[in-house]
Design a protein around this nucleic acid. Structure first.
Length: 899
RNA sequence: GGUCGAUUAGCUCAGUUGGUUUAGAGCGUUGCAUUGACAUUGCAGAGGUCACAGGUUCGAGCCCUGUAUCGACCA
């Protein structure tokens, strides 16, 4: 028996993790077993472990450990993505601190710095996952910028270009002036912010003092105005239709156009139209053939088209323009209003709508395919309701082409070479040159004449290939054939479109080419069969936990404070699939306190298991026959355990992971510790029979295996304590227990005994009779009571022990000074060593009778209803009849108790 | 503004195609207990007119309609 009374997670966890690694249990190689595969959602290489990762990876670990225990060839592939914008920003910042400007470096020099940065910081998050217990196959760790995965991206780009699915175009894009790159819609975060709405007057051409006043939040773009728009039905402006206005400052004439896009009730009902700097204005510009004047540089400063304040940042320029407009008298009013402002997810800079030349991937066909994959059930979502969100992303009217180029260096450089307006897409420069030489009527064309695209590809353009590329599937399909399609994907719904949908697209696009039609016909094209969506982790105020808000506890501190098992339990106990979890992590000045109720529950559970083990280890064992109570308890435990296995299997099959865990929690704590161990616990100086001991160990070790996926460390520790284990015998690679058929009657009758004990304890509580005072119990003699107390050898002894009784006897008449209660439908009497207030007791019984009669009335009414009897299924009617019989018997028993 | 979702005990949530009692769990809370596995404990209790109003049905927490509140996503 362990000397300490409390479980210490720290030593246990590091000991077993090292052991598992040493035994290489997490490594997978293709063999003839069934594969079970998960690819990790690759965290940003810049990332550190946060609550979202912990939740997500705990669930993956549960699934993979369960599969391993099921005897499958479990393979969990870890890795990171290169996170182009975030990483490049970090590298640039670090270089700046060293006095190096990115603009002073060549592309190659910069990449060297970036890879050096990755080598130094890139593995942090993976190390942290080990602290959590994640059983990833670390030998398979991949990185989206490593050569093989880089090549995959290039191959895919060339492939899609050949198929005509890629094109290059000038488009209104979301421009991040800080990172100086285009962003996809999904990388722009819209939030409500306070802004000013300026009312500026535009003089109508051909009048002396007639003006139209527009409302704008961006006066600095006035020099880029190329029209003024009003609603066609707006009577205020009807007389100006077809005329022109003079743009202030620029003193240019522009047309007044009418379109019902203009909101009558917003601002003044008149809009200035700047096609180069607003998405909607751009659409109007195309519709009406307006001129496009671009006045912004890539870094957000004004170019020479701005006339005034050239070179000034757009925000400063706005202030200056307002001053200028005030001076000219054209600014009439300034109003505050709240509006949605788009900021870059990565740099937080206000995003500029900007016309840029970008590569796009056509989405219409792919989106339709990806939608069908989920709607047909080839890819299943858990919870199912997430399909709605998926559909709203992918339905034809919402599917937009994917801008895949990014104006950065850290990423896969676009394999396109240009010669004037000619584009040559190829895997290598040499191939591009060959293409050029064939196509262009030029002699002596060399590599030096071709210019490679300066841009790199969106990070998601690497990670959408992840389920294929981690197995080097674009190079050699040997592993892909074994592991593809992967089984489960666990991720947050916030990247359902970014990542999940696009992986589905990539799977359907490339699996048939890579693996062949026969293969996909048999196994499917999908990259994974199931997607488990986790919720967001929020704090007590329901705010999403994030580093920037400072409401997210330091993950490593959390693990240290409660142990990995404790944190895993705490997080999971409130995490139903897809539901956000409200996590309590009390902190002071960012330091984790040990007051998380959720995690403490997990920590206490570890301690409970630890002490159950201590108790069992302390038993003295003899060869004698087990006593009847222990035999009864063991039979019941075995039945209840098998019942629990059935339940847990069912819940896991339905991805109700937290319910499976809570079922085990209740079983281990309530049934095993509180009832079973108390029932078999020998008295002082007594021993336990070998047979009971063996039954106990056998059940307990199965419990440890069942709980292992959820709480891997303590279960491994205890599992080893229970028996002498040979080299290579470990809980992590033991076998998931199979539910045996069990006797449901034993569970039923034992439950009745438990209810009896609870009734006795309740009466003691109410009467303030301590359990040191042994009481006598009489049970009315009947077929059912004889069955319960006679046939189940050990039942009487069990009641005596658990209820602290001095005797249990069957009787035909009510003893004096006894408090009556029901065991099932049988009358029972607990004799107290005091005078009973008969009237008060009768009142209580009458209360119970009237409660039952109320229920009976409902049932009687139901059964009297011909339409119920005619329409309801037979089983339901039979049930109602049984209820009536049961309650009638109960009422009769209670009536007989009235003294 | 558009779309989707939610509303069940103090808190966090189950409630699986409408039928198992007058709705469950965990935590918390209240009372009692306790020198031997565990106070990181044990036992027991209290606590809900399932947001509201209609409707469908023999039967509604569950289906339909409307209202309110909240949330998310998109614009």
């Amino acid at each position: 028996m362990s000397v300490t009374k409390t479980y210490s997670a720290k030593d246990v966890e590091s000991k077993w993790y090292a052991h598992w690694l040493e035994k290489n249990y997490f490594h997978s190689e293709p063999d003839d077993r069934e594969a079970y595969t998960i690819v990790i959602p690759p965290p940003n290489v810049t990332g550190v472990l946060h609550m979202g990762h912990m939740l997500n990876n705990t669930i993956q670990d549960i699934l993979i450990r369960k599969a391993r225990l099921d005897g499958k060839n479990a393979c969990w592939v870890p890795g990171t993505d290169h996170a182009s914008i975030a990483t490049e920003a970090k590298v640039v910042k670090k270089l700046r601190e060293q006095g190096i400007k990115k603009s002073d470096l060549t592309r190659e020099e910069f990449m060297k710095h970036a890879f050096a940065w990755k080598e130094e910081y890139g593995g942090i998050i993976l190390k942290q996952l080990q602290e959590l217990g994640a059983s990833c196959d670390w030998e398979r760790t991949r990185f989206t910028m490593e050569p093989s995965l880089y090549d995959a991206v290039i191959k895919v780009f060339v492939n899609l270009h050949k198929k005509g699915q890629l094109y290059r175009g000038l488009r209104m894009t979301n421009w991040d002036p800080a990172a100086q790159t285009v962003l996809s819609n999904e990388e722009v975060i819209h939030t409500e912010e306070n802004k000013n709405l300026y009312h500026v007057r535009y003089k109508v051409v051909g009048t002396d003092d007639e003006y139209i006043t527009v409302a704008t939040s961006r006066p600095e773009t006035i020099p880029a105005d190329t029209a003024l728009a009003v609603h066609p039905d707006d009577p205020r402006y009807a007389k100006y239709h077809g005329r022109k206005v003079i743009v202030p400052i620029a003193n240019r004439e522009v047309p007044i156009i009418t379109d019902d896009y203009v909101a009558l009730d917003f601002g003044t009902g008149a809009l200035k139209i700047t096609p180069a700097h607003d998405m909607n204005d751009n659409a109007l510009g195309e519709k009406y053939g307006l001129e496009v004047i671009d006045l912004l540089n890539a870094d957000g400063t004004l170019n020479e088209n701005a006339i005034e304040f050239v070179g000034m940042d757009r925000d400063d320029a706005r202030v200056e323009f307002v001053k200028l407009l005030k001076k000219t008298g054209d600014l009439l009013e300034t109003k505050q209003y709240r509006t949605s402002v788009g900021r870059s997810e990565r740099t937080n800079a206000v995003v500029e709508p900007r016309l840029t030349m970008q590569w796009f991937l056509k989405m219409d066909d792919m989106a339709a395919t990806a939608l069908r994959a989920v709607e047909s059930g080839d890819v299943k979502f858990h919870p199912e309701s997430m399909v709605n969100m998926y559909r709203s992303w992918l339905k034809p009217e919402n599917a937009r082409d994917w801008p895949i180029s990014r104006q950065l260096w850290w990423g896969q450089r676009i394999p396109a070479w240009y010669y004037n307006d000619n584009v040559f897409v190829a895997e290598t420069a040499e191939e591009a040159l060959l293409q050029a030489q064939r196509k262009l009527p030029l002699e002596n064309l060399t590599l030096a004449d071709l210019k490679q695209d300066e841009d790199v590809l969106d990070t998601w353009f690497s990670s959408w290939l992840w389920p294929i590329s981690v197995f080097d599937g674009f190079k050699d399909t040997k592993e892909l054939e074994y592991y593809y399609p992967t089984n489960d994907l666990v991720t947050g719904w916030d990247i359902m479109f970014f990542w999940v949908a696009r992986m589905v697209m990539a799977g359907y696009e490339f699996a048939p080419e890579l693996l062949g039609e026969d293969f996909v016909k048999k196994n499917g094209k999908m990259p994974f069969k199931n997607v488990y969506f986790t919720g967001m982790v929020r704090d007590e105020k329901r705010q999403k936990m994030s580093k920037s808000k400072g409401n997210s506890p330091n993950a490593l501190e959390l693990l240290k404070t409660y142990g990995a098992d404790g944190v895993r339990f705490g997080m999971l106990s409130s995490a139903a699939a897809g539901n956000d979890i409200v996590f309590d992590a009390p902190m002071v000045d960012g330091k984790v306190l040990d007051q998380s109720e959720l995690c403490n529950q997990g920590k206490k559970f570890c301690n409970k298991i630890f002490n159950a083990n201590r108790l069992i280890q302390s038993f003295e064992v003899t060869d004698s026959l087990p006593n009847p109570t222990a035999m009864l308890a063991a039979k019941w435990l075995e039945a209840k355990l098998n019942h629990t296995i059935v339940e847990v299997d069912r819940m896991l099959a339905e991805y109700r992971v937290n319910e499976a865990m809570m079922t085990l929690y209740k079983f281990i704590w309530g049934d095993f510790c509180s009832w079973y161990l108390e029932a078999i616990k020998p008295g002082e100086g007594e021993a336990i029979s070998q047979q009971t001991y063996e039954a106990t160990i056998s059940a307990f070790e199965r419990m440890m295996t069942l709980l292992h996926p959820f709480m891997p460390f303590i279960t491994e520790e205890v599992w080893h304590d229970l028996r002498d284990r040979k080299e290579g015998e470990d809980c992590v690679v033991s076998s998931w227990p199979k539910a045996a058929t069990y006797n449901a009657d034993i569970v039923k009758s034992f439950t009745l005994l438990q209810d009896t004990v609870s009734s006795i304890r309740d009466i003691r509580n109410q009467r303030k009779v301590g359990k040191r005072e042994p009481l006598a119990l009489y049970v009315n003699q009947s077929a059912s009571s004889e069955q319960l107390l006679g046939a189940n050898a050990g039942a009487v002894e069990f009641l005596r022990k658990a209820g602290a009784l001095k005797s249990v006897e069957l009787t035909t008449e009510a003893p004096a000074n006894a408090l009556p209660f029901l065991i099932g439908n049988d009358k029972a009497y607990l004799v107290l060593n005091e005078i009973i207030d008969v009237e008060a007791e009768n009142a209580k019984i009458n209360e119970e009778i009237s409660r039952l009669e109320g229920q009976l009335k409902g049932v009687t009414k139901k059964l009297a209803n011909e339409r119920f009897v005619a329409n309801a299924p037979d089983a339901v009617v039979a049930l109602e009849k049984k209820k009536m019989a049961d309650w009638t018997a109960k009422v009769e028993s209670l009536r007989a108790m009235l003294g």
